[in-house]
Amino acid sequence: MSSSTDSPTLTTETTQLSPQPDTETAKPTKKITLKSSDNQIFEVEESVAMEFATVKSFFEDSPSTDTVPLPNVTAKPLSQVIEFCKEQIKFKANPDEAQKKKYNAEFVTEKSDKDLVDMIPVANYLEIKDLLDVLNQAVADRIENKSVEYVRSFFGIDNDFTAEEEAALRREHAWAYEGVDED
């Protein structure tokens, strides 16, 4: 199996480890071209592309299209999302909840905070529910026991409270601010 990553065209393919039980995908695999907002081209197998509800409905509306433009999506998070969906297809073919859980956990563990946060709008836009659940949980896990300052830098948010408001908050939520993890 080849996976050419030569620029400017990024091509990703599903590695065919096991025969697909689905008769539709047993036909010669059809490729679908996705174009990111930064004009990167992704060629993905139809089965993977159909995991993206947005792309799927786009094809249902206009079946003759050869390239699906994704004006809301940049290349990096898109490539990560495709990577995730390719694995999910394998789990669809060979259900193994434990392995799937393990993969999902590893998938988010190795991502940077920024990668996670950048993927969420993409998963949301493409309507990939499973991934969105995994990402939302991962973000919640990363910030749940962190200081306010940590959360601000995590999301890149400016503090717009006045000094008095901030002090009042600290008094009120003292119990919540105790015992947070090191930033």
């Binding site: 749940e144 959360v151 409270f161 908050l169």
Partner: peptide, 15 residues
């Protein structure tokens, strides 16, 4: 998905 303490921290981030 955040526990109560996490929600409190989030509430302290911005208005």
């Amino acid at each position: 998905r955040l526990p109560p303490a996490g929600l409190c921290s989030m509430a302290g981030v911005c208005t």
